[in-house]
């Protein structure tokens, strides 16, 4: 696929900016990068192949996270030691994820019920559908529980599990051990840090998602970072993982520069607009809306997949 061929050109630019504005506003409102929504919607709405959508979304994400990192750096919200240690695992994960996507791209067509269907579209649609269902139901359940409780102050660290596998991971004594004073962590195995980095990097390289909904909770619940430091460190990590993701996808010809620019313009403005409305809505309602949005997303992906298979 020629990255320059599937869009009409400058006439598509305003529509892509508008799309970036909407996704950016939703991302800013819900406090996430929006990658999990951006990639399937680029495929569903603009008919952009998944490999181009992932590569270009990583470019958009790189710009957004760079701007956010500059901001968090100013307020001391970043644990640089943790971030740098995690980069090695993240880079490996991004490379593996991007390579898997490359394999899918070259797999070609599968025959399902006598019809020829693009293998990459099927696999990516199913993975996104599973991810959106998992996210949606978790968010809706959690927000409804919180809304029932009504008015109680919610401390993000209070819910961090302190027993079972999480505690075993947090206290794993496997050399080399590192002290992370900026996060208030006395001792943490490098292997735990690398594993979390690899897992989130893999999702980033394959699906174009930043990790705001996986790495950030992992930093809080598995590693025990304070939430504000987890947000800042996560953005620092996203900046590197998305930059590396763009580089590796660029070598594979998966980055559409016009698309990146349009999305960057749209999401930068949209995120500011969305974030300003978050405070008015309140946490549980925002998370409930986020869950519903994920279900709308999965419906659109499913409809597109059915139409693709019907057309053969």
């Amino acid at each position: 696929m020629d990255p320059g061929s599937f869009l009409l050109g400058p006439s598509s630019f305003p529509w892509l900016i508008l799309f970036g504005l909407i996704v950016g506003a939703l991302g800013g409102f819900f406090g996430v990068g929006g990658g999990f929504l951006m990639v399937p919607m680029l495929n569903v709405v603009f008919n952009i192949p998944y490999n181009i959508a992932v590569g270009s979304d990583l470019g958009q994400m790189c710009g957004m996270s760079t701007a956010a990192t500059v901001r968090h750096m100013r307020f001391g919200n970043i644990d640089f030691r943790l971030g740098v240690l995690m980069i090695a695992g993240t880079a490996g994960g991004v490379e593996c994820g991007a390579s898997l996507l490359e394999v899918l791209k070259h797999t070609g067509q599968w025959t399902i019920a006598g019809r020829q269907v693009d293998a990459m579209t099927i696999v990516m649609s199913l993975v996104y559908a599973a991810l959106l269902i998992f996210l949606g139901q978790a968010m809706v359940r959690e927000s409804l529980r919180t809304l029932k409780r009504q008015g109680g102050a919610i401390d993000p660290l209070a819910a961090a599990p302190s027993t079972g596998y999480v505690l075993k991971l947090r206290t794993l004594k496997l050399w080399p051990m590192f002290r992370l004073p900026a996060s208030g962590i006395e001792s943490m195995s490098l292997w735990v840090i690398l594993t979390i980095g690899f897992a989130t990097g893999f999702l980033s390289g394959m699906l174009g998602v930043g990790g705001g909904f996986i790495r950030m909770p992992a930093l809080v619940y598995i590693m025990g970072c304070p939430t504000v430091v987890a947000v800042g460190t996560d953005l620092f990590e996203i900046m590197f993982s998305s930059a590396y993701g763009v580089l590796t996808h660029a070598f594979k010809g998966n980055v559409h520069l016009v698309l990146v620019l349009a999305l960057l313009v749209g999401t930068t403005v949209g995120a500011q607009v969305g974030a300003s409305y978050t405070r008015k809505a309140g946490g549980p309602k925002v998370r409930f809306g986020f869950g519903c949005l994920a279900f709308i997303g999965v419906t659109m992906v499913a409809v597109k997949l059915c139409l693709t298979m019907h057309r053969g």
């Binding site: 470019g59 958009q60 994400m61 790189c62 710009g63 957004m64 996270s65 760079t66 701007a67 956010a68 990192t69 500059v70 901001r71 100013r74 900046m239 998305s242 930059a243 763009v246 580089l247 996808h249 660029a250 070598f251 980055v255 520069l257 990146v260 620019l261 960057l264 930068t268």
Partner: peptide, 22 residues
């Protein structure tokens, strides 16, 4: 030049926005 622009454009826009807001 394609590779260089792919990586540098988002980083430069991000830095411009970050320091611009500051």
């Amino acid at each position: 030049v394609y590779i260089a622009v792919c990586v540098s454009m988002p980083v430069l826009v991000g830095l411009a926005v970050g320091f611009g807001v500051r």
